[in-house]
Every structure is written in structure tokens, then in C-alpha cells.
């Protein structure tokens, strides 16, 4: 049975190869923090990391991520040990409805991994694939700069 490595743990997954990673995470592994928004990589709600790189899990199939280390929001940080992005998100009070925020934070964490002190232009380039209907963009930007100070 194919093995999917998520947040450091291997999971045997009995699903067809063409299953999008999102649904394996949500419906099979019960990791509900990664959310469905569009199904076509247009909104970024479903962003996870594959080997440290941002990935839209709604379009990446299990075949696409075979062998990759997947990190979801559940593995990013916890209330006791928050990732710098999560600590900054709380400090700046970024979230409104919160639905897109897992994807926003995963995308931001991927950015900070590549560019620890991102400029506004770096943030524009990295974050423009993540939609927020509540309009939290200014705070997302501020929180990424704040998170960079924590790293």
C-alpha cells in the first residue's frame, strides 16, 4: 500500500493514485485544517508543503507527491510551540473568518523558509496566489514582516 509521509509520520493510504492530496488529508487522515476553496489552484486555501515547498494540495495527486515529506498546518506549530508565522498572526490579529488562513500561513512559512527577510515585493510575489475574501491582506503582509523578526 502506498505510504504518505505527513507531519513526520508515515501513513498507509488505500486510495487511487490520482486522488488529490487535499482529500487524502481531509477525508482519509482527518487532518481538517487544510481547506477546500476552489479545487483548481486558484485560491490557495489548501496550501501545504512538499519537501519544504508550497504546494496546492487540491491539484497535486498522490502520484505527484509520492515520496515527498508533506507538512500541513497541523504540523507547522501548536499553541504551545507556535511557528513564528503563527505567533505573528496572533500578535497582528490577521484572521477574520479564518477559512483561508491555514493556506495563508503555510504559504508565508514557505516564503520565510526561502527568504528569511522578505521585502514587500517578495511578499507580493509569494502571496498573490492566496485569496482572502475578508480582505486581510494588509495584515498578512504586516504579520510576515513581524514573523521575519522572530526568526
Amino acid at each position: 500500500m502506498p505510504v504518505l509521509k505527513v507531519n513526520g509520520s508515515p501513513h498507509e493510504i488505500d486510495l487511487p493514485d490520482d486522488t488529490p492530496l487535499l482529500w487524502a488529508l481531509r477525508d482519509t487522515l482527518g487532518l481538517l485544517g487544510t481547506r477546500y476553496g476552489c479545487g483548481a489552484a486558484l485560491c490557495g486555501c489548501c496550501t501545504v508543503h512538499a519537501d519544504g515547498k508550497a504546494l496546492r494540495s487540491c491539484v497535486a495527486t498522490l502520484a505527484d507527491v509520492a515520496g515527498a515529506e508533506i507538512l500541513t498546518i497541523e504540523g507547522l506549530g501548536t499553541a504551545a510551540t507556535p511557528h513564528p508565522v503563527q505567533a505573528a498572526w496572533l500578535e497582528i490579529d490577521v484572521a477574520q473568518c479564518g477559512y483561508c488562513q491555514s493556506g495563508q500561513m503555510m504559504q508565508a512559512a514557505a516564503l520565510l523558509r526561502e527568504i528569511p527577510k522578505p521585502s514587500d515585493a517578495d511578499i507580493d510575489a509569494a502571496m498573490s496566489g492566496n485569496l482572502c475574501r475578508c480582505g486581510t491582506y494588509s495584515r498578512v503582509r504586516a504579520a510576515i514582516h513581524r514573523a521575519a523578526e522572530f526568526i
Binding site: G33, R35, I73, T78, A79, L90, Q101
Partner: peptide
């Protein structure tokens, strides 16, 4: 201090899409 901020940041299953009941179908 915001009461409802942390569950969103730590992606707790607070949305209707996250409801997961025993025996549930989709």
C-alpha cells in the same frame, strides 16, 4: 485580546466543512 483568534491560527476544526461525525457520509 481576541477570544476567537487562536483556533483559526492553529487550524482547529471550527468550520462546518470540518464537521466529522461517526458514520458520516458525504
Amino acid at each position: 485580546a481576541r477570544i476567537e483568534a487562536a483556533p483559526k491560527v492553529f487550524a482547529e476544526p471550527i468550520f462546518a466543512t470540518d464537521v466529522d461525525l461517526p458514520g458520516m457520509l458525504h
